[in-house]
């Protein structure tokens, strides 16, 4: 692999030693960056599917980038917990455990599923755009309103559900 001396300066990585993350009294994620306090910090994953615990971008309350946490695991445990809570809140993505039915109405399939967060019915407007398969087995769905759902490994579902998935992907 070619090493890139010219690139490293551009990354704006936050050193785990310099930062402390916590939820303040308002339950808002707060960043203490060497004494400089950022309130209401927003979080964004740079690689939400391929590296959900790496490259977490921290944004200030105006949405501008403060810096990047390279790896969640590098943080001290309190900061990590706070960041994980913020991520969990932002990236709500229930896991589909069973597909009860997929019924197509006017080419818009309606999915009726059981998730780890309960029962849910939603519509997928375009299976080309809104259904993504990652690593051949992981399925990410986006419904008509933009909500996300995930099938961690569709081959591990029950046989009926597998048939449903295979007709779509």
């Amino acid at each position: 692999m070619i090493s890139h001396p010219d690139l490293t300066g551009d990354l704006s990585l936050l050193s785990p030693r310099d930062i402390r993350l916590y939820l303040d009294d308002f339950d808002d994620l707060t960043l203490d960056l060497r004494g400089e306090i950022h309130h209401r910090v927003g979080v964004q994953r740079a690689f939400p599917f391929n590296a959900p615990t790496k490259f977490i971008v921290l944004l200030n309350s105006d949405g501008a980038e403060i810096g990047i946490v390279r790896d969640l695991g590098d943080l001290d445990s309190d900061s990590r917990d706070a960041l994980e809570i913020a991520l969990e809140q932002a990236y709500f993505m229930p896991r589909i455990l069973k597909i009860n039915s997929i019924v197509s109405n006017f080419h818009v399939p309606t999915w009726d599923v059981e998730t780890d967060r309960g029962h849910r019915v939603f519509e997928i407007p375009s299976s080309r755009r809104d259904v993504r398969v990652i690593d051949d087995v992981r399925v990410i769905l986006r419904d008509a309103d933009g909500n996300r759902y995930e099938i961690v490994d569709y081959r591990l579902l029950d046989p009926d559900s597998i048939v449903f998935v295979e007709t779509i992907v």
Partner: peptide, 23 residues
């Protein structure tokens, strides 16, 4: 991944990439 993000930053692409639905 570091290199990918760094290259994107150098090319001034990082900000618009973060605005995309799945970064």
């Amino acid at each position: 991944l570091d290199e990918i993000v760094a290259a994107a930053k150098t090319a001034n692409a990082h900000d618009f990439i973060l605005r995309l639905p799945d970064s």
